[in-house]
Design a protein around this nucleic acid. Structure first.
Length: 469
RNA sequence: GGAGCGGUAGCUCAGUUGGUUAGAGCGCCAGCCUGUCACGUUGGAGGUCGCGGGUUCGAGUCCCGUCCGCUCCGCCA
């Protein structure tokens, strides 16, 4: 029903008669001449209807409304000098319409397609319209391209793509299962997989050696803005490989996916950081390194302090640490309240974060007067405290200080608009995760990442000795 | 399970200390317009202010309840 897509026509097609089919992206009726931008999944082409070209077609074109589905026949023509449109790929040409078929008239739209829309209910209700929007259409295409690149890469590196069951046995650990009642066994249930974990390990035992799956996973837990009950992950398992092999594999995978999806050449090898460094320096096991604002230890600065709170924490084996939010002395009262709230949620035992602000040549701080001159000088040099900066302190156990300052760091960065650059990716490997961590509140040991992990070579001995303590 | 924010026209939102007929932009409908590209222009239609109750001479606005949505913590990797 078409000879070309709406992104195809160029100077070189001038003079040809073509047929396009798609949606009316916008109709501009000038009384005499009428323009429409015709849209299909590939792009836009401007079509012109002249009364003198074909009066009937021109008359019909007056009735066109946005999102009508139409088929246009016409001549590819050079646009009038000065009326080219650089914003679209086909902006050098236009179709002088000689024929018009209205395939389907559109209803009045419940929302406008050329604007960002925050109302997700409405977007879901009219998902078929939401997906017509340029941004969504681009995402759909991009996802397909990225998935395809991942498949190709993993295929070329010797991986089998294998589908594992969706209806499976409930597992007691981990996320809450979605359950599906069994018709043949009343009162019993299937679970939907949280991950293909057990199946892929069975595949390794079975001798498959290299497996992958673009796997749909289900977790019946509460949502977040970036967390849905069902999602897709690229699931990989391999036998007879080292950590180094897996790192190289995944780096190659990401290089290919980013090139295919975004046209970006990312470095072939990513920096690495230990879990402990990540927690100490960034207060997170997934640090955003696009900005610094590193957590700095002040143990030496306050080694001889007589400030009671710091003294007792340091003597008790705790830490005193701080971050410098450079240039954020402009923080508003509302922002400060928000940071305090976050710090309290993260475990700050008092209501307000201790801070030092250096503004207009003056240090402003609730605890500045408590510090000795030597301590002040050390704080200033250690944290590089300069005009316009604000420093936030936290004291306590190493873990709790990391959590508190990590959250404050992340939130302050958002407030300071340091996270807006969506073209910087800063890939980073976090290595040497501990298998378990002790929860101070419950007294339980819990998996830090997940329990399906081979022990570190240094710890193999302990496992063989049966030393599980 | 907990906390915060929100619900006013088809959409996005404004609405002051409680006060006359609840507004704007976009969209929609009609007219005009032969070179626009978010066309322009003139006019018009469109409202159970989420729902229920209360206070008041008077409630979009204050109080109580309730429903729905979003964000975060817990939870989840």
């Amino acid at each position: 029903m078409r000879s070309h897509h709406c992104n195809e026509l160029r100077d070189s097609h001038i003079g040809q008669t073509v047929t396009l089919i798609g949606w009316v992206n916008s109709a501009r009726d000038h009384g005499g001449v009428i323009f429409i931008d015709l849209r299909d999944r590939e792009g836009l082409t401007q079509c012109v209807f002249h009364p003198e070209e074909n009066p009937e077609v021109s008359a019909l074109s007056h009735t066109l409304r946005d999102e009508d589905v139409v088929q246009v026949v016409g001549r590819v023509s050079r646009r009038l000098a000065g009326s080219e449109n650089a914003k679209i790929q086909t902006g050098a040409v236009e179709i002088v319409a000689t024929g018009l078929t209205i395939v389907n008239k559109a209803d009045v739209l419940p929302f406008q397609l050329d604007k960002e829309l925050s109302n997700e209910d409405l977007r879901m209700k009219y998902r078929y319209l939401d997906l017509r929007r340029a941004r969504m259409s681009k995402n759909i295409r991009q996802r397909s391209v990225i998935t395809s690149a991942a498949r190709r890469y993993l295929d070329e590196t010797g991986f089998y793509e294998i589908e594992t069951p969706i209806l499976s046995n409930p597992t007691p650990e981990g996320a809450r299962d979605f359950l599906v009642p069994s018709r043949l066994n009343p009162g019993r249930f299937y679970a939907l997989p949280q991950a293909p974990q057990q199946y892929k390990q069975l595949l390794m035992v079975a001798g498959v050696e290299k497996y992958f799956q673009i796997a749909r996973c289900f977790r019946d837990e509460d949502l977040r803005a970036d967390r849905q009950p069902e999602f897709t992950q690229i699931d990989i398992e391999a036998s007879f490989v080292t950590q180094e092999d897996i790192i190289k594999l995944v780096e190659g995978l990401l290089v290919n996916m980013f090139k295919a999806g975004l046209g970006i050449e990312v470095a072939a090898s990513f920096p690495r950081m230990t879990y402990q460094d990540a927690m100490d320096i960034y207060g997170s096991d997934k640090p955003d390194t696009r900005y610094a604002m590193k957590i700095t230890d002040l143990g030496e600065v306050f080694s001889a302090t007589e400030f009671k709170i710091f003294r007792s924490i340091l003597d008790g084996g705790g830490v005193v640490r701080a971050i410098n939010a450079k240039g954020f002395a402009t923080i508003t009262t509302g922002q400060m309240n928000r940071l305090n709230e976050i710090a309290v949620q993260a475990g700050l035992p008092v209501k307000n974060l201790a801070f030092v602000k250096y503004e207009n040549g003056e240090y402003k701080s609730p605890l500045w007067k408590i510090f000795t001159d030597v301590e002040k000088a050390a704080v200033i040099t250690t944290l590089d405290l300069a005009e316009g900066d604000i420093v936030f302190f936290a004291a306590g156990s190493r873990e709790s200080v990391s959590t508190i300052l990590g959250r404050v760091r992340t939130e302050a960065a958002v407030m300071m608009e340091l996270t807006k650059d969506s073209t910087a990716f800063n890939f980073l490997w976090i290595v040497d995760f501990p298998l378990l961590a002790h929860d101070e509140e419950t007294g339980h040991w819990a998996a830090v990442h997940h329990p399906f992990t081979r022990p570190h070579p240094d710890d193999m001995e302990k496992l063989e000795a049966g030393d599980y303590a």
